[in-house]
Design a protein around this nucleic acid. Structure first.
Lengths: 217, 217
DNA sequence: GAAGAAACTTGTCAGTTGAAAAAGAAAGCT
DNA sequence: AGCTTTCTTTTTCAACTGACAAGTTTCTTC
C-alpha cells in the first residue's frame, strides 16, 4: 500500500507551521548529514548514530523527525532530487526554441555543473542502481523515468540532425551520465592520482568543455 | 610497515601446496562472495557473516583463511585487479605496433567488455574513490597509478594525431572510465528503466560500438 | 595406522546497530 | 498566569557486528 508514494507523513511533523523555525533547521541539518552518510557508505553502511553525530544532535532525535531509517533515506533523496527536477524543467522550457546543437551543448554543461555541485546525487544512485532494492525502484519510478524520456527526445533530435552517430538511446544515456559525473564521484582518487582538486571551479568548467567538445564535433 | 604491500601472508595458509585442493576451492568461494558483498554494500555495509553465508561456509572459517576483514578485502581486490593488470599488459604488448586510431578503438572495446565481465571492479573502486580511506590509497597506489600513466600515453598520441580535441588527460580518463562502465554498474536500474538486460552479449557489444563510434569519429 | 597438522564448526566476547519508551525542556495558545 | 503541543535528551532493548578461543573433523605423511 505504501510501496510507491509514501509522501503521507504519518504522525510526527504535525503541523508544518506550528513551532517550526528552529526545529526546521535541525531537521535540515540532519537531512544534510544523512545525504553525506548515505552517499558515502550506502544505506546499510551508514548508521543513524553516525548521522546524528554529524548533525550535532542525538540519535533519538533522528527517529523523532524521521520515524525509520528508510523514511530518513527517502526524505534525503527527495530533498536532493526534487529541486533538481524543478531546475531541469526550467532548463527544458528555456531551451525549447534553441537549435539542437547548442541545446545539447548547454544541457551537457548543465549536467556536468550539477554533477559537481551535488556529487551525492550520483553516489546515491550508484549505491542502489546495481541491485533490485525497493530504494532503487523508488528513485527510478519517482525521478529517473521522466529524465530518461526527456533524454531520449533530445538524443533522437541530435541523431536525426547528424550530430551523433546512430545508436540505441540507452547507450548514450549511460555514456553521458558516466562521462559527466564519474570525475566528481571519485574526487579523493583524482586528488591522489594527479594532485588536482576535482571540485575547483576551473576543473569543473574544463570538464564541461572536454565533455561537450568530445560529444559535439 | 605493512601499509603498502601486505602481500606477506602472516600465519594461516601455511604451505601453499600442503593440503590445498579442497581448501583452495572454499577459499576461492569465500573470495567471490566477498567481492560480491563488498562491491554491493561497501566495506562497512558488508558483514563477514553475510559473506560466509553467501559462500555456504561458517563465519569462523572466514577469519581462519583471512585473519581480518581488511585482509579479506585486500585479498578480494587483488584477485580482481591482479589478473586485469596482466591482461592489460598483454594487450599493451600486442597492440604496440598498431596505428593509434585502431589501437584506441580496440582498447575502448576491451575496456567496455571488461567492465561488463567484472562489474565488481568498478563498483569496488567507486565505493572507495570518494573518500580518503586507506583502501582507496591501496587501490590507487597498487593498480591505478600505472593504468593512469598508460592511458595518458595513449591519449597524448590520440590528441597529437588529431583524433581527439585537445584537453587535459585527466578529463578524458574519467570520461572514458565513466562512459565505458556506468551502464554495467547500474544493471538493475537499466532493467527497470528500459527492460533491457545490460549484461547480454548483444548489449555489451552494442555499448562497445556506441562508445568507440562516439569517441573516434 | 598412528601421529600431527591443516581445515572447519561452534560458542562466546565486547561493541554497535535501529527502534522505542520515558522523561524533561521549550514554545505556543488562551 | 496556566495548559497543551512540539521538540529534545537519555535510557533501554534485542539483534547483529568482527574477532577470538576453544573444540571436531579431515587429510597428509611417516
Amino acid at each position: 500500500m505504501t510501496s510507491l508514494a509514501m509522501t503521507i507523513e504519518a504522525e510526527p511533523r504535525p503541523d508544518p507551521k506550528r513551532r517550526s523555525v528552529r526545529s526546521q533547521e535541525t531537521r535540515e541539518r540532519i537531512l544534510q548529514a544523512a545525504l553525506k552518510a548515505f552517499s558515502e557508505s550506502g544505506f546499510d553502511g551508514a548508521s543513524t548514530r553516525q548521522i546524528a553525530a554529524l548533525a550535532g544532535e542525538s540519535q533519538g532525535l533522528v527517529t523523532y523527525h524521521f520515524s525509520t531509517k528508510e523514511d530518513l533515506w527517502k526524505a534525503a533523496v527527495d530533498s536532493l532530487f526534487g529541486p533538481f527536477t524543478e531546475e531541469l524543467n526550467a532548463r527544458k522550457a528555456a531551451l525549447a526554441e534553441v537549435d539542437i546543437r547548442t541545446r545539447l551543448r548547454l544541457l551537457l554543461v548543465f549536467f556536468v555543473r550539477h554533477a559537481a555541485k551535488h556529487p551525492e546525487q550520483n553516489r546515491l544512485m550508484m549505491q542502489e542502481a546495481q541491485s533490485e532494492t525497493p530504494r532503487m525502484r523508488y528513485i527510478a519510478e519517482t525521478y529517473l523515468k521522466d529524465q530518461y524520456e526527456f533524454a531520449c527526445g533530445v538524443l533522437r533530435e541530435a541523431i536525426d540532425a547528424g550530430l551523433l552517430p546512430p545508436a540505441p538511446h540507452i547507450h548514450y544515456f549511460y555514456i553521458v551520465v558516466g562521462a559527466c559525473s564519474r570525475l566528481f564521484t571519485a574526487t579523493s582518487e583524482c586528488k591522489y592520482l594527479t594532485g588536482d582538486d576535482a571540485m575547483s571551479p576551473a576543473m569543473i568548467e574544463a570538464h564541461a568543455e572536454a565533455v561537450a567538445n568530445l560529444i559535439i564535433r
